[in-house]
Design a protein around this nucleic acid. Structure first.
Lengths: 204, 204, 204, 204
DNA sequence: CATGAATGAGACTTCATTCAT
DNA sequence: TATGAATGAAGTCTCATTCAT
């Protein structure tokens, strides 16, 4: 018996399922989203989905695994293109300004993301994974920019890059979370004020 | 004729349920935790629980209400005792410094809180409730302090109190969320740096 | 130990419960009406109710038992007062004209009545009881009137009184049922036309 | 790809559920009959039943729909075959003569039907549905026949067809209800006398 | 490999009845 | 007797997963 379908075909199917699942999770939340929802959105059969993933949890996990890799490349490229540390930082903030959770799609992303993060809290392995991802990507991205700014004289040399990287992401996450949870949150305004606050501090 | 049980008795029972529910929610998450879990942990019957609360949502709401009330009173009292706006703000931050999610109990609180907030996202009524609670308590508390500081000359008069109230809470929430989700997060350090950042801005 | 409360007191309480139960059953139906509903309406405690009746079914049964006796006397008296058979028959129909199920209260009565009748269907004893009640009261009332009319020359002597009694009540019940079940049913109009139909036949 | 089971198979299953439900409803009443009862009688799983019907109400509605359809087709065909309006009307009455609730099966039908009608009384949507079904099928069927008779000169042209349609069905329902509720009710005799009564009126 | 009907445990919630006070 | 908090079986419905075709 030789395999009847190619690996590419299978990978394509897998991605289709993941894509559909992501939309569904975002719309209704992981627990509220049913396998039938995913079936409906993907247009595949339930049996097919269970051929590619062994459980609903499994889909969730695969989805998160995949997500980690995504923005990494985008960011890395865009940042490499900017010259000054200030430009890089501003680019980053602007990228998040576009991420306003008052837009339904962004809100969906945010919800899935936070939900999964909270879920990971009860799974040491996942928690470790998320922590590593946070450090290896988000923190080190910012540390790089701050250090660059300090070297070039743009930023105050006495600030601790690591601490301020954490502060930066805490602010972004805080604003995003509030905007996700609350009605009529002035996300963009808040984020811009945070930008001022943060840059003033860095350039002091 | 005579009431069968005292009000205290009933309040005690209520608190027992709330306590048990809180532990369960923290352990498994709000949605994954079943009423039967709460039954098992509380040692009461299912009917008894529904005598005190009309739904699972209702239990959570009461839990939150309780926390808000507790904070409200503590905060109100402590803040009234401080003289200057600066003292008041510092008190608030110190209260949150004690709230370090690296302590298991605080982490439990935080998880339940964020999870339910996310859950509320898909229930307009709940979302509205959370938004009102945020505005009526958290935002207005801070607006009061900022305005007081502006009147007394402690704080810069040109800052918008409302926006900075939002910024303050976004920072606190951001730090708490990160500390909840990530391993070995330097919660206290980050929060203190945020304190500096924020106060410098206000006093500019 | 002598009894502490009088028999009258107990009977009064019983009647109060029955009264409240009747309203509740009418409003929501026997199955949908809860003991708590009856508690709420009667203002008595749940324990008290169970002191007087041993179950919800028991209340229902007592209620029906009581109802049988009620209208009997009213009708008997009013009919005795009319002189001619025609007057008597017209009185009866007019009484039912006032019973329009488009009025909420009448509808309630009707629903409870029919619901119970259907319920009795599965209980031979009750069914027998209802049948006897129907014959001893409703049918014989009408047979009496018809025969009187035949003797006095008002009505056609060749008609079978018993059959026409059945027809009369089937028509009244049919119209009442339809009006109970359907929206915007022209109960009064239909009943009047039935009156014409029936009287024409009798007087032919 | 290929459908797993044929449409006939599914229709057969549906009918099996309906059949089982009908028996259960008749035995215990619509409200007292549980989904588990239907499960037990049908030998299927609960999930299977909810695959075919979305609620217990839905099962009843389908049952009713089915009966209406059956009657509709039978009636339509049989009535089209008769030439005169009188023949048509007589056919209709004869069909109901066969429906004698003294036969257990017919009684079951009747009980379920009336019980559900009463139940619908508290559900505006259902009530509306029942009213529409009554008008669209039962009333309009009879209006058609009466008008035809008026055109052909068989029936009195001055009678209001709509009112007399209501009268007709109230009489049929009244007789059926009485026969369902009471012991030894002379259903056939009463219905025949009603036929005379009604036809005399129409032909006057 | 694909299909989707079938399964049945389990979710939330209700409510008739009991019984300690 | 009166009270009403406690009980827990039972109700409807959902849904992740399996498996015969």
């Amino acid at each position: 018996m030789t395999p009847i379908v190619s690996e590419e075909y299978k990978e394509k199917k897998r991605q289709e399922i993941l894509q559909s699942a992501h939309v569904c999770f975002a719309e209704k939340g992981f627990e509220a989203c049913t396998v039938d929802d995913i079936v409906a959105r993907s247009g595949m059969s339930k049996g097919a989905i269970y051929n590619y993933f062994k459980s609903k949890d499994d889909i969730y996990l695969a989805l998160m695994e995949g997500q980690t890799h995504k923005s990494r490349n985008e960011f890395a490229k865009a940042i490499a293109e900017r010259k000054t540390a200030l430009d890089k930082l501003n680019y980053l903030i602007e990228a998040y300004l576009d991420n306003d959770p008052n837009d339904e799609e962004n809100k969906g992303h945010a919800i899935v993301h936070y939900e999964f993060s909270l879920y990971s809290t009860r799974n040491p392995k996942l928690k470790k994974l998320l922590t590593e991802r946070y450090k290896d990507f988000f923190v080190s991205l910012l540390i790089g920019i701050i250090k660059e700014g300090q070297t070039s004289g743009e930023f105050n040399k006495e600030l601790d890059p690591s601490t301020h990287a954490d502060i930066f992401w805490a602010m972004v996450n805080g604003a995003t979370l509030q905007a996700t949870i609350l009605e009529n949150y002035q996300y963009k305004l808040i984020l811009k004020e945070m930008q001022n606050l943060f840059l003033e501090k860095l350039r002091q």
